[in-house]
């Protein structure tokens, strides 16, 4: 059994490498890439499930096609330092597993890229949590990236927001985020890993609280004219609204399921008593 699994894995890896090499060749020839199954503005399939880590106050698992991210929230829990008197302390840690990428090399210790991304995610989320309701406490968010196929930041922010809702932390609104890659004349929403690593492109990440209509995070890198930036930001803001509706639907579904389960359990108990 094990032997055959290993063979299968090696075959798959070779296939992957071959594909990558082909893509590299394509990339070297032209910047225009062909998006396989979707249009420029179409998202990949998203799968969300919350409440899966039993030890955490709240958790959420997200899959954007092949990108897999797991987020758990611990808190609000007591902190011993008295400086956190006025509002809760909010920490966010992102970690890539060592097997999450076949290309980048990740260690067990935190490297600079992870620190930078942790800060960006923290900034996106901190505006949505009612920290002043929890003085003298600490809220910790731990994000683990199991597989990196592009759009990790969006997955992380979405999962973290859902996990906070699952943990019952008081929030003003959930945070929805969307990112895109801009080439010379196209704006591609929800980029895959290949699209993100193209040379001569710019990346834009927008995180937003739709109910309050406030942007909590905006990161852009690359060379763009003013008009392109405004256009891309607007497009991303619309994308955020779409993701928000998916998050909302998922949360309501899971809550309904929990209520149903509770009802079922109560009925069973009643029957037992009888």
């Amino acid at each position: 059994m094990r032997g055959s699994f290993r063979l299968f894995y090696i075959q798959k890896k070779k296939e992957q490498q071959k594909n990558e090499q082909n893509e590299n060749k394509n990339n070297n020839n032209s910047i225009d890439i062909q998006r396989n199954n979707r249009s420029d503005e179409q998202f990949r399939q998203i799968f969300l499930k919350s409440g899966i880590v039993s030890q955490a106050s709240g958790s959420c698992y997200i899959e954007i096609e092949k990108t897999k991210v797991l987020c758990s929230v611990h808190g609000p829990r007591a902190s011993h330092k008295t400086e956190e008197f006025v509002a809760a302390k909010f920490n966010c840690e992102l970690k890539y597993t060592t097997f999450s990428s076949s290309v980048d090399k990740y260690d067990y210790t935190e490297n600079n890229k992870e620190k930078d991304q942790s800060l960006i995610i923290r900034e996106a989320l901190i505006g949505s949590v009612r920290l002043e309701k929890y003085p003298k406490t600490v809220i910790d968010i731990y994000i683990l990236v199991l597989n990196d196929d592009g759009n990790v930041m969006v997955a992380s922010i979405t999962a973290a927001s859902m996990a906070l809702a699952d943990a019952g932390v008081e929030m003003y609104d959930m945070v929805a985020s969307c990112s895109s890659v801009c080439t010379k004349d196209r704006i591609l929403l929800d980029p895959s890993y290949q699209e993100e690593s193209l040379p001569n492109t710019t990346n834009i990440l927008v995180a937003k609280m739709p109910a309050l209509n406030q942007v909590t995070q905006l990161v852009q890198s690359g060379d763009l004219s003013y008009n392109t930036v405004i256009e891309a930001v607007d497009l991303n803001i619309d994308g955020c609204d779409k993701i928000y509706s998916i998050m909302k639907q998922n949360l309501i579904d899971s809550l309904e399921k929990q209520l149903k389960d509770k009802d079922n359990n109560n009925n069973n108990n009643n029957m037992d008593i009888k």
């Binding site: 905006l218 060379d223 003013y226």
Partner: peptide
């Protein structure tokens, strides 16, 4: 041309 945007400490 706009080369980078980042929101922080907010």
């Amino acid at each position: 041309m706009i080369c980078s945007i980042q929101k922080s400490s907010g």
